[in-house]
């Protein structure tokens, strides 16, 4: 369980607006092994969102290399990146980003649609994923019929359904109350214990405590990188 999943080497991301040059990531190197639960922390402007976009294959670095599960993704085109996201990464967003007026189970099926899975298998796997996050009884509910916590569970089920190598969560508790936040973090811990690598980007220190490793960023660089015994969410 110590194979490297993410290997960032001298990763730099530049944003140029007119004469102003913003170094969002400044020669960052980071290695995340399979089976880790990493929290990337930092205030706004620290570069953690850029880091998350690059790790999630939504954005490409200006320079440096990114190996994801041994594949060189920093040189891939849009279509290839879409395929990598589809197969290796499950996304969870702050605003849930579920398709409105679409049932929970169909939302969860979405990644499988783009993976070319048959309708019957899609339904079966989406149902299993929803059962895993405790929403087996809410398959046909639409997002607007579900609470915030439930919507985030649907989003987690959607992230899980493709059996990804890692789940990438961007401020997953940002839109939730503290009780629901702990429930969601408990779910992440459960998935982590089941063997999935989890990367959570957050600015809240008490959320980061649930991870086994905390990476703190500032000004596009890694400030601290510590492993510790995660706080148990109940």
């Amino acid at each position: 369980m110590t194979a490297p999943l993410i290997e960032l080497t001298d990763l730099t991301k530049l944003y140029v607006t007119g004469d102003v040059e913003l170094r969002a990531l400044d020669a960052v190197s980071l290695r995340v092994d399979e089976g880790e639960f990493v929290a990337i922390m930092g205030s706004s402007g620290s570069g953690k969102s850029t880091m998350m976009n690059v790790i999630g294959c939504l954005d490409r670095p200006t320079s440096g290399t990114y190996l994801l599960s041994g594949r060189q993704v920093s040189v891939m085109g849009k279509s290839e990146l879409a395929e990598v996201r589809n197969q290796l990464i499950g996304f969870v967003f702050q605003q849930f980003n579920l398709l409105s007026r679409t049932s929970a189970v169909e939302n969860v099926e979405l990644p499988l649609v783009y993976a070319g899975v048959s309708a019957r298998e899609r339904r079966a796997r989406a149902t299993t994923a929803l059962e895993r996050v405790g929403l087996g009884a809410r398959l046909e509910h639409r997002p607007n019929q579900l609470s915030g916590g439930q919507q985030q569970r649907v989003a987690i089920a959607r992230a899980l359904v493709n059996d990804p190598k890692m789940i990438l969560a961007d401020e997953p508790t940002g839109a939730l109350d503290s009780k629901t936040s702990i429930e969601v973090m408990a779910l992440f811990q459960e998935l982590w214990r089941a063997g999935i690598t989890v990367v959570v980007v957050t600015h809240e220190a008490d959320i980061a405590e649930y991870a086994s490793r905390v990476v703190v960023m500032r000004d596009g660089k890694i400030l601290t990188d510590e492993r510790h015994e995660p706080k148990r969410a109940v």
Partner: peptide, 8 residues
């Protein structure tokens, strides 16, 4: 969302 989950 569709792009994030893998739509080319």
């Amino acid at each position: 969302v569709r792009m994030a989950v893998g739509a080319k």
